[in-house]
Nucleic acid binder design. Structure first.
Length: 124
DNA sequence: CATCTGACGACCG
DNA sequence: GCGGTCGCCAGAT
């Protein structure tokens, strides 16, 4: 699977800013949502200058195996994105793909699949 | 083909 | 605020 669009978008993240998996997913209109983005990030090829460390979880939380989490925190703090404990102040450092990355395609057809649930779950 | 897992997100208790 | 669960999709076994 080529996650090029995801990597490309990640590379658009300016230094000193961060974005979330969910934002990337919504920006790319991925059916899988944040999950697929996380999957893509997990397979991020090294040596391409992809700032994977600028991609964090929702709410500025770091979600990943320890070795990477530690490195990510260090890299971000180096770029000027301080951590408040185990998270980042998204209010100040959140970066929106739409704002920073200009979309070449003016309009894209919704890739939404006609998947729907038969009936509402009792989860109410 | 069935089942589990995973660098997520939202909701509930 | 934290932990557990469900929903979502893709890949591996």
């Amino acid at each position: 699977m080529s996650w090029d669009p995801v990597y490309r978008l990640v590379k658009q993240i300016p230094r000193g800013r961060v974005t979330t998996y969910g934002e990337l997913a919504k920006s790319l209109r991925l059916r899988g949502g944040a999950r697929v983005v996380g999957y893509a990030m997990a397979a991020t090829p090294r040596g391409r200058g992809i700032p994977w460390h600028r991609v964090i979880g929702a709410g500025g939380k770091v979600t990943m195996p320890e070795p990477h989490a530690s490195l990510q925190r260090r890299l971000l703090s180096t770029e000027g994105v301080p951590f408040e404990g185990a998270r980042i102040d998204m209010k100040l450092y959140a970066w929106s793909p739409k704002s920073g990355a200009k979309s070449h395609a003016k309009s894209r057809k919704p890739k939404r699949k006609p998947t729907r649930r038969v009936a509402p779950k009792s989860r109410v």
